[in-house]
């Protein structure tokens, strides 16, 4: 403890220089708070326009909509859109990387997959689908189970062998604690 100074008749530990610095720090702090709020509204910390991202496979058969920014234990969504051509005989075969699936918990898949197959570093989901000439959509509802950068990949199973180009999409999310 420093000794109290004397101001008039008052014994008080007044420190006007510190007071001035404090006022300045407060003003800076308010500006920072405002910036944080603006960033949050824009989606820098989760849901919002800046957070929405889309990745398309080279062949155009698969489009993935994902959250660029997500939050730990909070819901997130992965939307896969398939072009009409990507429907093969017997349905849609789409794989997701194990690396990604290990760090998320799948709450729900709409529609429910017909079967799931383990393939090393991938998990292939098969959905029954009719060739209607219209694009199809599958939604994965997720809960993030890791903190930090999470890389993922999705693709159409079997495409690399057939058409000579891999229908594969890479995406990456940052997950806030």
């Amino acid at each position: 403890m420093t000794r109290p100074h004397r101001v008039g008749d008052l014994e008080i530990r007044q420190d006007l220089e510190f007071h001035r610095r404090e006022v300045r720090a407060e003003n800076v702090g308010w500006a920072v708070m405002l910036l944080i709020l603006l960033a949050a509204l824009l989606g820098l910390f989760g849901s919002g326009p800046l957070s929405k991202a889309t990745a398309q496979a080279a062949g155009g058969g698969l489009t993935v909509k994902y959250n660029r920014f997500a939050r730990y234990l909070a819901p997130a969504e992965l939307t896969l859109t398939f072009s009409p051509d990507s429907i093969q005989e017997g349905g849609l075969h789409v794989w997701l990387s194990r690396e990604f699936l290990q760090h998320v918990q799948i709450q729900q898949i709409t529609p429910e997959p017909d079967s799931v197959q383990l393939e090393g570093q991938r998990l292939t989901y098969t959905f029954k689908a009719l060739k209607t000439g219209q694009p199809q959509q599958v939604v994965f509802q997720l809960e993030m189970q890791a903190i930090g950068t999470l890389k993922g990949a999705a693709g159409l199973a079997g495409t690399s062998a057939q058409a000579g180009q891999a229908e594969e999409v890479q995406f990456s999310s940052f997950i806030y604690p």
């Binding site: 008052l10 008080i12 007044q14 420190d15 404090e22």
Partner: peptide, 14 residues
């Protein structure tokens, strides 16, 4: 540390 105290608790002002 009086400095830390000042930083955390602020100072009285007349």
């Amino acid at each position: 540390s009086p400095k830390l105290e000042r930083l955390i608790d602020s100072v009285p002002v007349l």
